[in-house]
Simulated scan of single mutants.
Amino acid sequence: MEHYIGIMSGTSLDGIDAVLVVTDGQSIELKGCANAPIDAPLRERLLALAGGGAVTAREWGELDAALGQAYADITRQLLADTGLNATEVRAIGCHGQTVWHQPDAKLPFSLQLGDGNRIAALTGIPTVTDFRRKDMALGGQGAPLVPAFHQRVLAHPERLRIVVNIGGIANITVLAPERPVLGYDVGPGNMLMDAWCRRHTGAPYDRNAALARQGQVLPGLLAHLMAEPWLALPPPKSTGRELFNDVWLDARLAGDDAVADVQATLTEFTAAAIAQQAQAWPTGELLVCGGGGHNPLLMERLAALLPGWRAATTTEAGVDMDAMEAMAFAWLAHQTLHRLPGSLPEATGARRPAVLGALHFPD
């Protein structure tokens, strides 16, 4: 068993999560967690970049370095909290911050910022980054990458389980006994809800769905949102802020809708897009991880839209819902160092499984 650190900052840009695990690749145990907000000015610059804003080479380099510094800082915080020495950690697996994901272009690519050289140099720990582009070079979407980890920690020999990661984007992993794993993005998770709440209240997200509970779902708007052609595409597929952003939402609003009604409708949109995919399968367990698991209205709506299903969080199934993605990238770092595949072609559409990531040494 070896110690690994996993670092994740997702499309929600709501903070950085870091975990310490011990794993042999087959079993994995969570030993510690740390989280930190992204500095507000840095967050605003990243939001502008991910929204398609123009950026100079200098600004690009500054953002890459600033994120590398932030990832190194949270690693050192985690080591201090757990009392572990850097020399006892085999490697860091750092997802980086996605600023553009374009899997369906003539030359597909995905860009994550966060200088792995800086992380390795400042922590003294070998660091694996750039997990997505090898899969894309092999014809895959480069996403989602967590289904292989979901299979490792949550597959049940007799029970259908659909794992739903609700971060900025929502993605599902279908774990059906004696069938290949299936995984793909299903649409916006918290991204549009957070953006609308931030625009109208200044709060980063709708805590306890307080704003959404004040409103009513607008059937016409919901139908307009659900008519997005991307939702009907077959997997493999992945998406991000490049599609589901403020411009996309504003083009579908009437202009005079009440703020709370729009928030309620966006919550229902996320739930309906997820439920639509789950309904294609026999009833089973829907296990939610990520920030969406803390939205009580979203959880209620998932349960209501999927009668006969058991809707719960992955925490209830034994894997911390807040640590899940960071744990996945710690496990992916293990796979890389042991030259083992980290991707599932069934999920990404790549021609074959591959060893993922670029390895940066501290010396």
Rank of each mutant, 00 (worst) to 15 (best):
V164C: 15
D14G: 07
G52Y: 04
R310M: 08
A66P: 14
G167Y: 07
P229Q: 03
Q277V: 12
R43W: 00
L160I: 08
G6I: 03
I119Q: 14
A195L: 13
P103Q: 01
A209G: 05
T56Q: 15
L78K: 14
G189E: 11
A209C: 06
A271T: 15
L356K: 10
H294T: 12
C33K: 12
G293S: 14
S238M: 00
I274C: 07
Q263G: 00
L84I: 11
V217L: 02
F131G: 12
L145D: 14
P147K: 02
H156L: 10
F329K: 07
L302V: 13
G240N: 01
L182K: 15
Q77Y: 04
W248E: 06
V163G: 05
L359T: 10
A170V: 10
D256T: 08
Q279P: 04
R43Q: 11
G124M: 11
L13K: 12
L344I: 08
Q151L: 14
L84T: 10
G318C: 02
G255W: 00
F109K: 02
Y205I: 02
P345T: 09
L340S: 03
V217P: 01
R351F: 00
V259K: 13
T11Y: 07
H3Y: 10
I16N: 04
M193V: 00
P177T: 03
I16P: 07
G114M: 09
L138D: 08
L337I: 04
R207L: 00
C33D: 03
R161G: 09
R199E: 02
G290T: 13
C289P: 11
A155W: 05
Q69T: 14
R301G: 08
G116Y: 01
V146M: 14
W60V: 13
